[in-house]
Design a binder for these strands. Structure first.
Length: 567
RNA sequence: GCGCCCGUAGCUCAACAGGAUAGAGCAUCGGCCUUCUAAGCCGAGGGUUGAAGGUUCGAGUCCUUCCGGGCGCGCCA
């Protein structure tokens, strides 16, 4: 149940009845404990528009609003806030009988375009954000009952493939030698830069490849297969839900590109400019107000990523029948996607009802605050990052809990290490730049995955020790102590947080919530004896534990983070 | 030059639609393990939210100017 939405609905109905028009109630979680659990902030702006007295309006609204099943008698505070305190009965009933997460009444078909590495190179830290944030959103949207279509738009067709295939051809490299893609890429690049004849052959190879030359295609396929296998190994290790079936590569759009340009031309949107084919839209101006082009075909006849992205929009909107398409890419591509979406709308490649949303994320910075540049030899491969994370976690687990058997210790280290890496990324607002810092990422304290995982194990441990199964517990908890109440109020907020993340695409909100929930649980755990309490209280507190554990596990699950029995 | 994003405690980050006294973690200092896992809990210090104006009952949030950083701007993706 979405408590915030419920309160908003009730207050907006009352506001509409009083004012005769719809105005936002702006219900938010209360900023301070003394203000209750939620506060209504919409009275003051509404009163201002009506040139009325906010407190008087608040009284009128309170006379009309039907909320006594949910909250204690509300208070009007300050210039016109309404403070709401949830009834203990409502908290107990919600925790006792409402599902953790209700599915949406309006399921949609949602394409999530994420990860999308370039297959010319091995995956590195630069691919982390798209992969991890995208996967969390895909899981979360699916859990809300939407139909999620994952699209891994891998780069398998760029000009650098000419260089790689030519080098592959010349060296006759086998699969084992290809295993280190990074090394292979560097060697090919060095050759390309040093040897003009090799560079020329590379460019010819691109042309042959795009013409469908059998030999070139065979070598290309061999290379792609190796590279994709690398990616899949990383996905499996990360616990990312992408599979080979989700790969829909750039090359898949090849056959549509000519038609995209032809269609733009047919509609009079295409303009020849310096030999290239461009689309100019009024809303995009460059310096001195001169129009900014979207180039869809080069002067040599080749197509560009803009063309491919337009074809992808059309495929997703028409063929996949998406209601919504989410693009998880670098913020640097913001202008590109604004242009693509605008052109796609104008040309009718996207149905008018399809929502196209770029969900950008910030740049990768080093600890010095400078942009994290991928100079040759300085990229951190994802595989190495994950090795390091697991090794650090293993050392920590061994120190903290030496009694754990070897195999379990390894499993815990994996969950903790991988979880820490994913959570470090998920817990930060994706719009901000991202400081890549080993120590920060692998510090297992505070708002981190291990803290949340630890809270889960504490709960598990209580049930083990008490030899209690949650099914035997009473449905409704009694909520008497302050720590119990604070925990309960957070527990009933889960639905509203998940729905907000689904809307905004910001998993850090869910992270913040889960962390807050965990700290509330830790305080409850310190303040309220559970197993040693009298039978009635004990059962009630175990019910709160069970609900907290279920919420944490589900929440972490939506983020793609594993939990363990003990650690 | 034009445009987009960013600037919050020493560091890394929050602050949800303009709401009430800007919050966490790390680091620093001080407490708490003979009772459910101390990866924990409790407490202390630490801020002119880059600067200056403006809008209003109220601004970290909106507007203007400036400073500082990042990125983008015709045939790479």
């Amino acid at each position: 149940m979405n408590v915030r939405a419920l309160l908003t609905e009730r207050f907006e109905a009352a506001l509409a009845a009083v004012l005769g028009e719809a105005v936002p109630a702006n219900v938010q979680p209360a900023g301070r404990p003394e203000f209750g659990d939620y506060q209504v902030n919409g009275i003051m702006p509404a009163a201002k528009r009506m040139r009325g007295n906010p407190r008087a309006l608040a009284e009128q609204v309170l006379a009309r609003v039907a909320i006594d099943d949910l909250v204690e008698p509300p208070e009007i505070a300050g210039p016109g806030f309404i403070n709401l305190t949830l009834k203990v009965d409502f908290l107990a009933e919600t925790i006792g009988s409402m599902p953790l997460l209700a599915t949406t009444a309006h399921p949609e078909r949602i394409v999530v375009d994420y990860s999308s590495p370039n297959l010319a190179k091995e995956m590195h830290v630069g691919h982390l954000r798209s992969t991890i944030i995208g996967d969390a959103l895909a899981r979360l949207l699916a859990a809300l009952g939407h139909t999620v279509i994952r699209q891994n738009h891998v780069g398998d067709w760029g000009t650098q493939f000419g260089m790689l295939l030519t080098y592959l051809d010349e060296t006759g490299a086998n699969s084992a030698e290809l295993a280190d893609l990074e090394q292979f890429y560097r060697a090919a690049k060095a050759r390309f830069d040093d040897d003009p004849a090799f560079a020329a052959r590379s460019r010819e190879t691109v042309v042959r490849l795009q013409q469908g030359d059998a030999h070139a295609r065979e070598a290309w396929q061999r290379f792609i297969d190796v590279s994709l296998a690398h990616c899949q190994a990383i996905y499996d290790r990360l616990g990312v839900t992408l599979s080979p079936a989700d790969v829909y590569a750039e090359s898949a759009y090849n056959d549509a590109l000519a038609d995209i340009v032809a269609e733009l031309d047919r509609q009079g949107l295409a303009t020849a400019s310096d030999g290239a084919t461009c689309v100019f839209l009024d809303e995009f101006k460059g310096k001195d107000g001169e129009p900014l082009p979207v180039i869809v075909q080069k002067s040599d006849g080749g197509y560009l990523y803009a063309t491919t992205d337009l074809a992808a929009v059309r495929y997703r909107s028409r063929t996949l029948a998406a209601d919504r398409v989410l693009y998880l890419t670098d913020a640097r591509q913001a202008l590109h996607f604004r242009q693509i979406f605008a052109v796609a709308r104008r040309a009718g490649f996207a149905n008018p009802t399809t929502r196209l949303e770029h969900m950008p994320f910030g740049a990768m910075l080093g600890t010095d605050g400078r942009p994290f540049r991928t100079r040759a030899g300085e990229v951190v491969k994802l595989a190495e990052l994950l090795d390091e994370a697991e090794a650090r976690a293993l050392a920590l687990v061994a120190g903290k809990n030496p009694e754990l058997p070897e195999d379990e210790r390894r499993a815990v280290a994996r969950a903790v290490g991988i979880g820490a890496v994913k959570y470090a990324d998920l817990s930060k607002n994706r719009a901000s730049d991202y400081v890549f810092d080993w120590n920060q990422m692998l510090a297992f304290e505070g708002n981190t995955a291990p803290y949340l995982q630890y809270a889960c194990t504490r709960i598990q441990s209580i049930f083990r020790r008490g030899e209690v199964t949650p099914e035997t517990l009473p449905v409704r908890p009694a909520i008497d102590e302050r720590a119990e109440r604070q925990l309960a109020v957070l527990l009933v907020r889960f639905q509203e947080i998940v729905e907000q993340v689904a809307e905004d695409g910001c998993p850090h909100l869910l992270c913040g919530y889960l962390y807050e929930l965990s700290t509330a649980f830790m305080r409850f755990y310190e303040a309220c004896p559970i197993l040693n309490a009298d039978a009635g209280v004990r059962a009630s507190r175990l019910r709160l534990c069970a609900r907290t554990g279920d919420t944490l596990r589900l929440g972490l699950g939506l983020l793609g983070i594993e939990t363990v029995e003990r650690m």
